[in-house]
């Protein structure tokens, strides 16, 4: 094709896309029917996302991995109409995955984006260092202006802990159960629920009495809802995962994590923005449960192991599963 035709198509295509994005910006996301994807579809989706231009990938990752606001995404990427682009992309990807009248469920988008991010970080980690940067004098000067005097890690941890303690104090102050029940308060302190504006960190704190922790495989799953069969089991780095699927491609993931290794894991951080976290009693142990779209999540700690169940099942079923995990 002659270069001129390509230039004209670029210009005209660009104008058409702009108009399309303007239309998409007005799309009511809340009224869209959302459909969860199977594991295989999530992998396909991740593959498709990684083929998209970097700007589009950035929008999806900032939204679904880091929960940035639309204005935050625009600022970060120096882009315009991020809402229109996000809607356009989600509609486009839903179509590419073969969904006709529905868009991909938010939880599935998040899972796929996290897979993409994992891939990007693998690439980043394996990148070879060939050159030593030679920054200009002016840039070095700017860096000097923010040079540190204190140990950086300690200062930040101090701030983070202050936030966590503040939230714990708030939680205690407003929880009547915890005020009246010593037993309940003790159980509460089995967990530190560190809540940031958009995420919650669940970390078991009961390592002291776990001198002889059990093997992850010692925990038995005694109940799985009808129709679900084991599709995959993986163990690595102190994490044991079981994945179950049913014939409608609905999934349940059970993950056992060694409590001692939790700080280095991604999996204990959950996006809990705009969700109500319910705390409940499972076999005398405090557990936390919440729902995102059609997906239920529950976390608790038993026998020195952090247990996580994530699945497209209802509240009663997920509680029953949790109650039926035994040594």
């Amino acid at each position: 094709m002659p270069e001129k035709v390509e230039d004209i198509m670029k210009e005209v295509g660009g104008l058409s896309l702009q108009a399309e994005l303007q239309r998409m910006a007005k799309w009511d996301r809340d009224s869209v029917l959302r459909q969860p994807l199977s594991l295989l579809q999530i992998k396909q989706l991740a593959n498709k996302i990684s083929l998209l231009p970097f700007e589009y990938q950035g929008i999806l990752l900032f939204k679904h991995c880091f929960n940035n606001t639309i204005s935050g995404i625009e600022e970060m990427l120096g882009t315009e109409n991020a809402q229109g682009k996000l809607n356009y992309l989600e509609k486009l990807l839903s179509g590419l995955l073969g969904l006709r009248d529905a868009w991909i469920a938010t939880a599935s988008m998040e899972e796929a984006c996290n897979l993409v991010l994992e891939g990007i970080m693998k690439e980043y980690d394996s990148a070879k260092i060939v050159y030593k940067p030679e920054y200009s004098k002016s840039f070095r000067q700017k860096l000097k202006e923010i040079s540190i005097k204190k140990s950086p890690a300690k200062v930040f941890l101090f701030v983070a802990k202050q936030v966590a303690i503040f939230l714990l104090v708030l939680f205690l102050a407003f929880s009547s159960v915890l005020v009246v029940s010593v037993e309940a308060r003790t159980k509460f302190f089995d967990w530190v629920l560190e809540t940031f504006p958009e995420f919650s960190l669940f970390q078991s704190q009961n390592n002291a009495d776990q001198n002889d922790p059990i093997e992850l495989t010692d925990l038995n799953i005694n109940y799985v809802p009808d129709g679900f069969v084991l599709s995959d089991m993986q163990e690595s780095g102190g994490i044991l995962s079981y994945r179950y699927v049913n014939e409608n491609n609905m999934r349940i993931t059970i993950r056992f994590v060694r409590s001692s290794g939790s700080m280095s894991s991604y999996y204990n951080y959950y996006n809990t923005e705009k969700v109500g976290i319910e705390d409940l009693d499972i076999k005398g142990i405090r557990a936390y449960m919440w729902q995102i779209d059609e997906v239920m999540l529950i976390v608790w700690s038993q026998d020195g192991v952090e247990c996580h169940i994530v699945g497209e099942i209802n509240k009663e079923e997920i509680i029953k599963m949790a109650e039926n995990i035994t040594k």
Partner: peptide, 9 residues
């Protein structure tokens, strides 16, 4: 100061 430290880190 804590934010400057984090940038440096």
């Amino acid at each position: 100061e804590a934010e400057k430290d984090l940038v440096n880190q």
